[in-house]
Amino acid sequence: MSNPLIEVRNLGIAFGRGAAAVPVVRGVSFALGREKLGIVGESGAGKSTVGRALMRLLPPAARVTADRMAFRDTDLLAASERQMMELRGRRMGLILQDPKYSLNPVVPVGEQIAEAWRLHHKGPAREARERTLAILEAVKIRDPARVARLYPHEISGGMGQRVMIAMMLIAGPDVVIADEPTSALDVTVRLEVLHLLDELIESRGLGLILISHDLNLVRRFCDRVVIMYAGRVMEILPAADLERAEHPYTRGLLASLPSIHRAQDRLPVLRRDPAWLAGAGGTP
């Protein structure tokens, strides 16, 4: 890929030092262009850890090593904390799973969105307010002036997630990392939020990393999919080809999903093969 937004080569992450170090991510490589890239895996696969490593949000106990981990021309391993402060939010946005925990419960949502803008831009409070209302409109919230005055507990889960998206977009990032952005939402609301995210990503030409445990969601929503298992990349393939995935882990995961339309006596159970851990992982 020429001129990727994010490039990761041979990323390793371990917690702890020396002999007691526990490796949680090994040999992960991928590149992100202006596309929607899904990272899928089960709990403990290391997918969120990779997302946080990109934002340098891991706790100090984490040891991150890589041949290369870069956002455009900035080396994310070597960047100073001051440089990271400029990147985080401003150039790379992060959306988390549950708006209930990610929003400040005692500050109206409008103020929280305005704060995100003021953190990265100099400008009068009036402009921050106008931009807040504009971005709330962009995430399809009716009556933005009223919603801006509400506290997080007064809005629904779907609206909370729109507020989170607004808060992240107002800074104008190039890359969005969304960690399970819709897992806390009902199916019908989930769809609205995904459509919205899709539209905003397309219209603004952003790159998206969507971290999810949900194969179906990623299959429908993303361009390419990285399949992770036990801290390693099993394979990387176009989302449209997921049905024809070759890796036994991917196939096993797909098969273990119950179906609305197909009657089955038993669901095929995934047989984990230690050999999967031996391979170096997929190609970027």
């Binding site: 199916v187 019908t188 769809l191 969601l217 429908r220 929503f221 179906s259 609305i260």
Partner: peptide, 24 residues
């Protein structure tokens, strides 16, 4: 009936459509 995708109530249809739109 559910497997055939033929429940008629509009809300069930909506749920089914939402499950299918992002799923199978």
């Amino acid at each position: 009936t559910l497997r055939a995708g033929t429940p008629t109530h509009p809300y069930t249809q909506e749920l089914l459509a939402a499950s299918e739109a992002y799923g199978e």
